[in-house]
């Protein structure tokens, strides 16, 4: 996994609560068996006028001019500002894959849905929870200032605005460690193979029915 240490980039405001993963990447694009190539269909229904199809070339499709990521001033966005409960709904990891493929490195919101939040960390994408009033302030500042950039510093757990204001955020120590170092957590867990075997040996004594070969 690609590590995340610090990142500075253009921020864009997506002013909508309860953005669900169907919105982030609609179902017709989930038919891919790959992890890449979802960026052109990120927010497909919000972004384009027409209905997108898998494997379709997107450069000539009619754009919805009112959608934030279509506006000139937000081209090259890598930090997405969002409202509460971002990423609710389906568990599809295609949602962080699409954000990542589009070039988003961090999403800042007052709250996230649990599964989406967790999926981000598996893909080098940093979801940041800030207080409602802090997010409000960032929305105001980004809308008022073209070319507004934010600096996200995972080591120090801060978001820094162009004027130098810093907001701190919380992140689990284990997730932070994996993300800073780009660690493959399957490899880490497999280092605990002895503990897993020990659990199984103990559990089979008390709940043997859980370990029966399943009848076909």
């Amino acid at each position: 996994m690609r590590p995340f240490t610090t990142h500075t980039g253009i921020a864009a405001p997506l002013d909508l609560a309860n953005v669900d993963t169907d919105m982030i990447i609609p179902k017709q694009f989930l038919k891919s068996i790959k992890r890449t190539g979802f960026g052109k269909n990120l927010f497909d229904e919000l972004r384009y006028e027409d209905e997108g199809q898998p494997d379709q070339e997107c450069t000539g499709r009619p754009l919805r001019k009112d959608f934030v990521l279509n506006q000139d001033r937000y081209q090259g966005t890598s930090v997405l500002l969002a409202r509460s409960n971002f990423g609710c709904g389906s568990s599809r990891e295609h949602a962080p894959w699409a954000l990542d493929d589009f070039g988003i490195r961090s999403v800042i919101a007052p709250s996230f849905a649990d599964i989406f939040y967790n999926n981000c960390f598996k893909n080098g994408l940093l979801p940041i929870v800030l207080k409602e009033e802090e997010v409000d302030q960032l929305f105001e500042e980004v809308e008022a200032n073209e070319g507004y950039e934010l600096t996200v510093d995972l080591e120090n757990q801060t978001v820094k605005t162009p004027s130098g204001t810093e907001f701190s955020f919380q992140v689990d120590a284990f997730r932070k460690h994996c993300l800073l170092n780009g660690l493959d957590d399957i490899g880490l867990t497999l280092q605990q193979a002895d503990a897993i075997h020990a659990y199984e040996e103990k559990r089979i004594q008390t709940a043997p029915w859980l370990f029966e070969a399943r009848a076909l």
Binding site: P96, I115, N118, K122, I186, T189, Q192, I196
Partner: peptide, 15 residues
């Protein structure tokens, strides 16, 4: 529910 990375994690480690 879990994401695909965790599907792989469970397949590989049972955890």
């Amino acid at each position: 529910g879990i994401g695909t990375s965790e599907v792989e994690h469970v397949l590989a480690t049972q955890c």
